[in-house]
Design a protein around this nucleic acid. Structure first.
Lengths: 383, 383
DNA sequence: GGTGGGACAGTAAGCGTTTACCCAGAGTCG
DNA sequence: CGACTCTGGGTAAACGCTTACTGTCCCACC
C-alpha cells in the first residue's frame, strides 16, 4: 500500500529482496557488512536498494535540492513509504548541519510560572524548527553541572537557565564557566528571570522588572492608605526576592512611610511559608493592615492564615501577590497581583539566543516589564 | 590550568600545536582533511593529538571499559580538560549505542495536570539516564503527525501521547499507524490518560480510573442527600469526559436516583465553559442542589457563577471537582475533588516503556486508581 | 627456552548521512 | 561538427566516535 506505481515496484522489490546479493565478482566490500538484526529501522541504503538507485539519489530526492527525474522521484518515494523510512538525525547531524535543540533547565516544571516559561520556549523553538529539551535540577548544583555538560554533548543551540536563584560568588563562577564552555562550542547560555552577569561573560539575560513590579504593588497599597504593610519576601539572597524587596522599600520611601524591620520577612516562595509567617505576624502582634506577598503562592498561604484568624480580606486586611498565576483571579477575593510575562520571557529568550546565532545584532540583556493587575483584594484600611 | 602534569603537557602541546603536521612521508590521507573553522568544538582527535595517543585510547579512557595505564589516563584527562572536550552524541549514537530520549507530546504544558505528568516523566526518564523532549500539539492533528515522525528521526525510546482525546475512527487509525511505525523502529507508543487501543496494536497504555473517580464523586454528593446533581462534563466524545459520565450515571443508578438529561451537559474543560453552563442552568431553572464539575478548572467557573448568583457554597449548592489541581485546596470553600496521580502516571509510562525494552515482561495496559479528596465544598442539601 | 597470557596501545572498519567531484547523454550554439 | 552547458545520476570522502582485530612487551610457567 502507498505505492504509486505497483508494477515497477514489485519488480524492484523482487530484485532487492535478495538482500544486496553480489551481482558478480565485484568488490567484496559490501559483502563484508555485518548482518544486522531485523528490527533495525530501515536506512537510506535500504531505500536505495528498493528503489534501484544510489543512496546519493535518495538523499537528494528527499532533500529536494538537486534535479531528480519525476520517474526516479516516484520510485524513491514509493520505497520510502513502503519501508517507513525516516532519516537518522544522528547521521544527518554528523554530516549536514541540523539545527540544535533548545535546552530548558529549571528547578521544577510543576510551578505554574515556570510551566508558562516552558510553553513560551517550546512555542518559539518549535516555530523555528527546534526541539526543546526540558530538565529539572531540583536545586542540585551538581545536577545542574551535569545537565549543562549533557546539553553541550547534545549540541544544544542554547541552554536556558530559568528562575531566580541565590547569586553568590560561587554562582557567578559557575555561570561564567557555563557561559564560556557553551560559547566555545558555538552554543549560548541564556539566563531567564535572573540578574545579568558581570560584563565580558558571553551570556544572554532576559529578566523582568521585579523591582518595578514590587514598587507598583506596594505603592498601590500605600496609595489606598495603608501604612503597615507586611512583606512576605522570598529566601534571603535569592535574586528575585531581593529585587522585590528593593521595590517594596522604594515605594515606602516614595510615600514617606517609615521602613519597619519587623514587617520585612524572608522565607520560601511556598504556601506553607506564607501561612506560617502571616500567622506569626498576627500572633506577635506587629500590627499590619496589608500584606504584600512575594508570590501568589505565598499569598495563598497568607489568605489561609487570615481566614483562619477570622480576618476578612479585603475588609480588614488587604493582600497583594506577585506572578499572576492563572488561579489568582479565582481566589476569594480575586487577588490583586503583579503580572509577569512568563510566556514572553520564554519566547524572548529563544529569540535572542537564536537571532544572535544567525548573526543579527541583538541585545544581551533584556528586561521585560511587569504590570499591576488590580482585582478585589485591596481596600483602604478599616481604621 | 587544570593540567595535572604541566611538564609533560607543555611538551605534548609543543608537538601538537603544529596541527598534525606530517611527520615524514606518511600516508597523505590525514593531510587531505579540510581545514575546519576555528570555533568548532574540539573532537576526540584533538584530544588524542594533544595527549599524544590514538583516538582509540582516548575513547577507551573516557569509557573506562578497557585497561589504560595511569600515566596515559592522566595525559588524556589533562587534554580533555584543557580543550573542554565533550563527546559528540551524534557520533556516539552512530556507532556505540546511546539511550534514546523520551518524547512527551501533549496539548499544552501549561495545564496544571499535564505539567505534573511532565514532571513525572522527566523524573523517571532522568533517573534512567534519558533526556525528555517536550512538544505541544495545540490540538493540531497534522502537527501531531509531524511530531511523531520527528521523534522517530530522533530515535526516541518512547513517544508518550498524553491527555484525553476524541477517540473516533480516524483517531484509531492514526494511533495504529503511529504504533506500528514506532514499533518497527524499536521505539514504543505510550498512551497516557487515554483508553486502550484495539488488541494487536503495539502500544502501551497508562490510564487512570475516570469512571471510578466520577462514581465516587457523584456518590459522595448523593450520599449527602443530593438528588439533582448538575454534571458539567467535557467535550462530547472526549475519552475522559465520556468515562466520567459513565461514572456519574453508575452512581445515580446505584443510588436509585433517576437520570435527568437536562442535568447532563457537555462542553470544554475550561473555566469559561463551567461558568457559562452553570449560569445557564441557573437561569433556565432546571433545579439542582449540587454540581459535579468534570474538572477543577470547570469547577472554578461554576463557583464563580454561583457566587455571582449569590448562592453560597456549600450552604446552598455543593460542588465537587475532578483532578485535584494544586490550588483546589485554596479555593473558598476548599474544593472536594478527585485526585488523579498525574506524576505517577508519567513515571509509570516511562517505566513501562523502558522495562519492556529491556526485555522484562510487563503489562501493556495499566489503570491507576483515583481517589476522592473530601474538603469543604459539599454539605447536605438545604431543603 | 618456548609458550601462554595479561596489560596496554594502535589500526581501521563501520555507524547513516550529505555532498564534492566525476561522468554520460542530450541539447545548443557558433 | 566540436566545444559547452544542462540534466540526471553514481562514487566515495567526510562527519566523530566505538570497538574488533592486531600487535608488542613482559612475565610466569612448565
Amino acid at each position: 500500500m502507498g505505492l504509486t506505481s505497483p508494477s515497477r515496484c514489485s519488480n524492484v522489490g523482487a530484485v532487492t529482496d535478495e538482500e544486496e546479493g553480489p551481482v558478480g565478482a565485484q568488490e567484496p566490500k559490501r559483502a563484508k557488512r555485518k548482518r544486522r538484526p531485523a528490527d533495525r529501522p530501515s536506512t537510506i541504503r535500504d531505500v536505495a536498494a528498493k528503489a534501484g538507485v544510489s543512496v546519493a539519489t535518495v538523499s537528494r530526492t528527499l532533500a529536494g535540492n538537486y534535479p531528480v527525474s519525476a520517474e526516479t522521484r516516484e520510485r524513491v518515494m514509493a520505497a520510502v513509504d513502503s519501508l517507513h523510512y525516516v532519516v537518522n538525525v544522528h547521521a544527518k547531524a554528523l554530516s549536514g548541519r541540523v539545527a540544535g535543540p533548545i535546552a530548558l533547565v529549571l528547578r521544577d516544571i510543576t510551578g505554574p510560572s515556570l510551566a508558562h516559561v516552558a510553553a513560551g520556549v517550546e512555542e518559539e523553538a518549535g516555530s523555528r524548527g527546534r526541539l526543546s529539551l526540558v530538565c529539572s535540577t531540583k536545586d542540585d548544583t551538581k545536577r545542574e553541572d551535569d545537565l549543562v555538560q549533557l546539553m553541550r554533548e547534545q549540541h544544544a543551540a542554547a541552554v536556558l537557565l530559568v528562575g531566580g536563584t541565590v547569586t553568590d560568588d560561587a554562582y557567578h563562577r559557575r555561570m561564567a564557566g557555563y557561559a564560556k564552555a557553551l560559547d566555545s562550542a558555538g552554543s549560548r547560555l541564556v539566563l531567564c528571570g535572573r540578574p545579568p552577569l558581570p560584563a565580558g561573560v558571553p551570556a544572554t539575560v532576559v529578566d523582568y522588572d521585579n523591582r518595578g513590579g514590587a514598587f507598583q504593588a506596594t505603592a498601590h497599597l500605600l496609595t489606598a492608605g495603608h501604612r503597615r504593610v507586611l512583606f512576605l519576601s522570598g529566601a534571603p539572597g535569592f535574586s528575585s526576592a531581593e529585587e522585590r524587596r528593593l521595590g517594596y522599600r522604594d515605594a515606602l520611601r516614595a510615600h514617606g512611610v517609615p521602613y519597619a524591620d519587623e514587617l520585612d520577612t524572608s522565607g520560601d516562595y511556598t504556601r506553607a511559608s506564607g501561612y506560617l509567617r502571616t500567622r506569626e505576624a498576627l500572633s506577635t502582634g506587629v500590627g499590619f493592615t496589608a500584606v504584600f506577598a512575594g508570590s501568589d503562592v505565598v499569598a495563598l498561604g497568607a489568605l489561609a492564615a487570615l481566614r483562619e484568624a477570622g480576618l476578612s480580606v479585603p475588609g480588614e486586611v488587604s493582600v497583594v501577590g506577585f506572578d499572576d498565576v492563572p488561579f489568582a483571579a479565582d481566589l476569594t477575593p480575586a487577588l490583586t497581583t503583579v503580572r509577569v510575562p512568563y510566556e514572553e520571557l520564554g519566547r524572548t529568550a529563544v529569540r535572542l539566543a537564536l537571532d544572535r546565532e544567525v548573526g543579527f545584532a541583538s541585545d544581551n540583556h533584556v528586561v521585560l516589564s511587569t504590570q499591576l493587575v488590580i482585582r478585589d483584594s485591596v481596600r483602604p484600611p478599616a481604621g
